[in-house]
C-alpha cells in the first residue's frame, strides 16, 4: 500500500517535471535543427544533423550581443538600486525606532499588489514625455529601481539577527550609520544572493515597460528586440521558428543558468517571507 502510494507520488511529480522541462528541451532542439521537424520523431533528431545556423540567422536580424548588454545594464541597475537602498530601508525597518516606520512597512507590502496597468500610462507620460528619458537606461530602470519584495526580505533578515549585536555597538558609542556600516552590512551576505535572484527575474524578463519606452533598436533589451522579431517576422517569413527559438535560448539561458547554480538561495522560505511580509 505505502509503496504503491510512493510510486504514484513520484509518477505524478515526474509528469509535472516533464511538463515543465519538455518545452525547454524542445526549444534547444528546435534552435539547432536546420529545418523544423514537427513530427514526434522530430523531438529526437539525429545529432549529426544539428547546426548553429539559426543562431547566426537571428544575430543577423537583431544584434544579440547588444541586446544582452542592454538587458544586463537594465538588470544590473535595478539590482544595484535595490541592494543599496533596500539594505538601508530594510535595516531601518527592522532595527531602528522612528516615526513612520509602521507606515513605511505597510507601504512596502502594499506596493507589491499595485497593478502596473494603472501606472503604465502616467509613467509613460512622465518618464518618456516630461523627463525625456525615452531610449535611455535611466528611463528603463526608474520604475523598477527599488524592489519592494527585497526591502521586506532584508527586513526579515535583520529581524532574525540578535538584537544585542546592534545594541552593543550603540553602547560602544557607534552612531546609527556606523552601526549599519560595520555591524549590519558585514552580516548581510547570506541574504544578498536571495535578493539578487528575486530582483533579477523582474527586469531581465520584463517586456512591457522597456517595450514602451525604447524605440531605437540599439537601446532595446533582448526581450524587446526578440519580441519585435517575433511579431514582425512571424507573419511574413515562411519558416521563422528556428531563428526565433535560437533567440529564445539566448534570452533564457542566463536566467536558467543563474537559478540552477544558486538554487539553494531561492527556496520556499526565502520567497514566502518576502511576499507575505
Amino acid at each position: 500500500m505505502t509503496r504503491r502510494v510512493s510510486v504514484l507520488r513520484y509518477v505524478v511529480l515526474g509528469i509535472g517535471a516533464l511538463a515543465f522541462l519538455f518545452p525547454f528541451y524542445y526549444m534547444v532542439i528546435g534552435s539547432l535543427q536546420p529545418e523544423p521537424d514537427r513530427t514526434p520523431a522530430g523531438a529526437f533528431p539525429d545529432p549529426s544533423n544539428l547546426t548553429l545556423d539559426n543562431y547566426a540567422a537571428i544575430d543577423d536580424r537583431i544584434d544579440l550581443f547588444q541586446g544582452l548588454v542592454n538587458s544586463g545594464i537594465f538588470t544590473g541597475g535595478v539590482i544595484l538600486g535595490t541592494v543599496v537602498f533596500g539594505v538601508l530601508a530594510g535595516y531601518a525597518l527592522a532595527v531602528l525606532q522612528w516615526r513612520g516606520r509602521g507606515m513605511t512597512f505597510a507601504l512596502a507590502v502594499l506596493v507589491q499588489v499595485v497593478p502596473f496597468q494603472l501606472l503604465m500610462i502616467p509613467l509613460y507620460v512622465l518618464i518618456a514625455r516630461d523627463y525625456g528619458l525615452a531610449d535611455s537606461y535611466l528611463g528603463m530602470i526608474l520604475p523598477f529601481a527599488i524592489n519592494s519584495t527585497a526591502v521586506i526580505v532584508f527586513r526579515q533578515y535583520f529581524l532574525q539577527l540578535p538584537r544585542e549585536l546592534f545594541d552593543a555597538a550603540a553602547v560602544d558609542g557607534a552612531g546609527d550609520l556606523r552601526t549599519l556600516w560595520s555591524v549590519a552590512l558585514p552580516l548581510v551576505r547570506p541574504v544578498l544572493l536571495t535578493v539578487v535572484l528575486i530582483t533579477f527575474i523582474g527586469p531581465w524578463n520584463e517586456f512591457l515597460w522597456p517595450f514602451l519606452i525604447t524605440k531605437e533598436q540599439s537601446m532595446q533589451p533582448l526581450a524587446v528586440s526578440l519580441a519585435n522579431y517575433i511579431s514582425n517576422v512571424a507573419a511574413s517569413a515562411a519558416n521563422p521558428f528556428g531563428a526565433m527559438l535560437a533567440g529564445a535560448v539566448v534570452l533564457a539561458a542566463p536566467a536558467v543558468v543563474l537559478f540552477l547554480l544558486f538554487q539553494r538561495y531561492f527556496t520556499s522560505t526565502n520567497i514566502g517571507s518576502g511576499v507575505k511580509g
Binding site: 517535471a17 524542445y26 531581465w204 526578440l226 517575433i230 521558428f241 526565433m244 527559438l245 537559478f259
Partner: peptide, 28 residues
Amino acid sequence: RVSFYVPYVTASVAIVSVWLFLFSGDGL
C-alpha cells in the same frame, strides 16, 4: 523543485517562441 520553477524564472518572450512552435497548425 528546480524543474517546477524554471518556467517562472524564464522570460515570457522566450517561452512564447516555443509555444508558438508547439501549438501552431502542424506543430507537435
